[in-house]
Design a protein around this nucleic acid. Structure first.
Lengths: 133, 133
DNA sequence: CTAATTGCAAATCATTTGCGCAGGG
DNA sequence: CCCTGCGCAAATGATTTGCAATTAG
């Protein structure tokens, strides 16, 4: 899936790549490290950082920043998508929206630009359950 | 403009508030500190951090994160707006878009949520001037 | 065999915080 | 006068990096 990109396929890279491709959520490096160690103890957190950076440069994973001070990652093979963050639970929901992407392209064009990438994050809450403060 | 919020109006806060309200761009703390010192030497970077956090909690400034690893700030009296980042120059352009905000509300509603906040960033480039690599 | 990769620990970077002192109300 | 806010320097937390040992191709 990512072997033929000029990277040596080492044991730790294999593990980290697997952890990433199997993840359905948006783990941070600490979490990736935990999962990797659970599969094979021979990984250091430094290698996770290095690998994740490498995969990001190669376009295999996307780095996300939800304003928590650390980065989260997810494989790009899930397709271009955006995020809705439940402000009460912190849960992240992915979604795609054709109409939105088209609108984004239009907005950029109107400003005289050609769109390269869009980052959209919706912070929201479930309406019914009023949080007692 | 922000005095009656239960904050003591000290000299350094006055300076930092002025620097912020006069800024047309999105300075980071380091930059705010530089500008503040230029007006009045009696400010420490720690105070800039403290003040900026305070003003953010009070809703007087907005914290932005353009994925550079540090936060940038701008006064909220400029209104709710989004950002287009020129990927070649790093320049940030602000814009508003009614249609987009409505669409965002719709998307959240469709997912069963009530929108609290939207963060939209367009990464784009000017089409004509091809950057020589 | 040789360059790429790893682990570890030390180094960075942005940001926060403890503490004794100063100043606003 | 009292409590809040300040400067300083040390503490934190995430991420990066130098270096010597290890390994993929």
């Amino acid at each position: 899936m990512c072997i033929e990109r000029g990277l040596k396929m080492t044991g730790q890279r294999r593990i980290i790549a697997r952890v990433l491709s199997e993840s359905e959520d948006h783990p941070d490096v600490e979490e990736l490290y935990r999962r990797a160690v659970a599969l094979d103890a021979d990984v250091s957190i430094a290698t996770v950082y290095r690998t994740v950076r490498l995969l990001e440069e190669k376009g295999i994973v996307a780095r996300r920043d939800f304003g928590e001070g650390r980065s989260r990652y997810d494989p790009t093979d899930r397709g271009q998508h955006h995020h809705l963050i439940d402000v009460d639970t912190g849960k992240v929901i992915e979604f795609e929206d054709e109409a939105h992407d088209a609108l984004a392209r239009d907005i950029a064009a109107k400003l005289g630009f050609e769109l390269v990438d869009v980052r959209l994050q919706l912070f929201a809450r479930r309406p019914e359950q009023k949080k007692p403060k």
